[in-house]
C-alpha cells in the first residue's frame, strides 16, 4: 500500500511534507512540475496538496486521468482550481471569511452529512470548522461528507466542502475533493484547526492507503 503526495515546490509544501510536525506521512513525494505516469506506478492514492499552481495541474491532466482510469484514488485539496482539470468537479467561489467565529455566533454552517464514512473515524467537527475556499456541487454518484448550510453560506445557497466520488465516470477511480487548504495554513504555522485537520486526514490515509509499519 502506497500513498504519494504532489509537492508544488512552495515553502508550505516543504514544511508540511518534510517538517518535524507531520514528517514521514507519505511513501512517495513527487514534485508536481516533474510528474510522470511512471511516478504513479503502484500508488494506491495520490494526495494533490492544496495550492499547487493550477497551470501545472492542467498540464498534468492526461496523467491524472489515466491514473484514475487505472483505479487510482486522487485526494484533491483546496485552491487547486480542480474545476479546470478534474472530472466532475463543480466549484463556486466564496470570499474567504477569516472572521466566522466573530460573526456567525460560532456556527458557520458546517455539517457532517455522512457520519458513517470511514474518514470520520479520524476527522471530527473540531478539525473541520474553519474558513473554506468556495463550495462544491458533488456530481451524480458522489457523496457529500461535509456540507455548509444555506444559513452559513453568504449567498444563502449552501453546498459541499468535502465529498467522496467512487467509480468516477463509471470506472474504478475514486476522488476525494475538498475546498479546505491545510498544507498552506499548517505549513505557514497559522491556524491550529488547519493543522489538526491535516494531521487527522493523514491518520485516515495511513489507515486506508498505507501498509502499517
Amino acid at each position: 500500500m502506497t500513498l504519494a503526495v504532489l509537492d508544488g515546490g512552495t515553502y508550505y509544501h516543504q514544511e508540511a511534507i518534510y517538517g518535524e510536525r507531520l514528517g514521514g506521512r507519505f511513501d512517495r513525494t513527487i514534485y508536481a512540475p516533474e510528474l510522470t505516469a511512471a511516478d504513479l506506478a503502484g500508488c494506491d492514492a495520490l494526495m494533490v496538496a492544496d495550492r499547487i499552481h493550477p497551470g501545472v495541474l492542467r498540464g498534468k491532466r492526461p496523467i491524472l486521468l489515466d491514473y484514475l482510469v487505472g483505479g487510482g484514488t486522487l485526494i484533491v485539496l483546496g485552491e487547486n482550481s480542480a474545476q479546470q482539470w478534474a472530472p466532475g468537479v463543480s466549484w463556486e467561489f466564496r470570499p474567504t471569511n477569516f472572521w466566522w467565529w466573530l460573526e456567525q455566533g460560532g456556527d458557520p454552517g458546517h455539517r457532517i452529512v455522512a457520519p458513517d464514512h470511514e474518514l470520520f473515524r479520524h476527522v471530527g467537527m473540531k478539525e473541520l470548522v474553519w474558513h473554506y475556499h468556495g463550495l462544491l456541487t458533488p456530481p451524480p454518484g458522489a457523496t457529500s461528507l461535509v456540507d455548509i448550510t444555506p444559513d452559513g453560506d453568504p449567498q444563502g445557497k449552501g453546498g459541499s466542502i468535502l465529498y467522496d466520488h467512487c467509480h468516477v465516470g463509471g470506472g474504478a477511480g475514486r476522488m476525494i475533493v475538498t475546498t479546505l487548504d491545510p498544507f498552506y495554513h499548517h505549513g505557514s504555522f497559522f491556524m491550529p484547526a488547519a493543522s489538526r485537520f491535516l494531521g487527522k486526514l493523514l491518520d485516515w490515509t495511513d489507515e486506508a492507503f498505507r501498509t502499517p509499519g
Binding site: 508544488g8 515546490g9 512552495t10 515553502y11 516543504q14 514534485y31 512540475p33 495550492r51 499552481h53 497551470g55 501545472v56 505557514s188
Partner: peptide
C-alpha cells in the same frame, strides 16, 4: 507574468521582480 514564464521573460525591461508567498521556490 505567468509564473513559469519566468525563464522566457526578459527581465531587463523591469526594475523589480515581485515574488509572492505561493511561489514554487524549487523552480
Amino acid at each position: 507574468v505567468p509564473f513559469y514564464d519566468l525563464e522566457r521573460t526578459v527581465l531587463s525591461r523591469t526594475r523589480a521582480l515581485l515574488l509572492g508567498l505561493h511561489s514554487d521556490q524549487r523552480y
